[in-house]
Design a protein around this nucleic acid. Structure first.
Lengths: 208, 208
DNA sequence: CACATAAGTTTCCAAAAGGAAACTTTGTAA
DNA sequence: TTACAAAGTTTCCTTTTGGAAACTTATGTG
């Protein structure tokens, strides 16, 4: 399969990349931190253990009694596994909201090619950031392809059934069994073939 | 829980988060500040006047001799008319290429919470557009949650094992069996519980 | 209800940040 | 090269942060 072919399975993939300039409003850090901690279901004590900051310190930060040092903030973001900007931005609700699209088992939109049988998921929705589909991998050999597959964005792949060999431009081929997954930049040449007796089934999600 | 993000499922989500708990590298704040100041063509003295911080203080911050307080950082961002995130993110983040991260079956990074057992995938890569993880759904009831889960971005969910009930703010609850999937806006309130005898296993991919 | 326990706040002190001024370095002109 | 000014760094001291423990406030439990 050439790369044009590959691209044609991305019809509704015009992804809304409305990168609005992040307008950061000075936010009450303490308040925000408390929100975050609560949303994680953590007590001060637990947060203390995760961050390495004393629970008294966290309390004071949350109540705006002190202004944490950058160091302290790093401990917080790192310990709670969040990123800095999250501490300053209150999650905005500007993007689309309220959409939902269910795809029942094997009820996706079929899209066969010479090397795959794709089953597109959530095709009712357009303008989505991700494009999920299941694929039955029929290719068995290099020669089933006419070259590297390559396109914009990033791709996540999970093996649902069987086994595949994942080839990519800059890495050794690797075998992936059921349950294994790989995340890669899709502009790096890639392709894959079934390595199991039955054609493998994979889940693919792409984003650009 | 109110409308804030349900952060516990977004551990290493976007920019900058390294996965090492203690070994924080992320930002050389001082270096970054110096870059910014230079690019504005300001001397320490001028920056001092604009920010209200002593020039000695600015010097020490730039040379990483001290860790500024949040207050100081606000004075900086405000005085120099920049956004907080600019201090943490190096602007040169463009489309990466050639990255690849394999996660073997059940070899993801565990991240248990009260309602889920998450297994984060592809955690070696940072700055990715998507965040994939598998989750064992332990919640069995509404009451296991303290409110809608809600956060930025869009989410794709595929049931790998068992059965779940998917609740969302604007739709009737719906049951999803193995192989079923759903795509939705994550800022619409949502939550889910296992409906099968065994706790269900799902694949989740989020993007924002 | 009193009691036990967990969650959160305040106190107190050591440690670190922030500011004024002294000091050093860099750049420029004679 | 010296003289000088501007830029940047370090010192010294005051103010503030951050941590341990005492204290107060919620949340059950029998």
């Amino acid at each position: 399969m050439s790369e044009e072919q590959r691209l044609d399975i991305y019809p509704s993939m015009m992804i809304s990349t409305d990168n609005k300039p992040e307008k950061i409003v000075p936010v009450k850090l303490g308040e925000r931190l408390k929100e975050i901690r609560k949303s994680l279901g953590l007590t001060l004590e637990e947060a203390s253990q995760k961050t390495g900051l004393a629970r008294s310190t966290l309390s004071k930060i949350e109540n705006e009694q002190i202004s944490p040092t950058f160091q302290a903030m790093q401990k917080i973001t790192c310990g709670l596994q969040i990123n800095m900007p999250q501490l300053f931005t209150t999650p905005k609700r500007v993007n689309a909201t309220g959409r939902r699209d269910i795809t029942r088992h094997e009820a996706g939109k079929a899209h066969p090619t010479s090397t795959y049988e794709h089953e597109l998921l959530a095709t009712q929705l357009t303008n989505k950031k991700m494009m999920p589909f299941k694929s039955r991998v029929r290719a068995r050999d290099f020669s089933d392809y006419s070259g590297w597959i390559r396109h914009d964005g990033e791709e996540f792949l999970l093996v649902l059934e069987g086994e595949i060999t994942f080839f990519s431009e800059f890495y050794e081929p690797v075998n992936l069994k059921m349950g294994d997954s790989v995340y890669y930049d899709a502009n790096m040449g890639h392709m894959l073939i079934s390595a199991s007796e039955e054609d493998a089934l994979i889940l693919w999600v792409t984003a650009s």
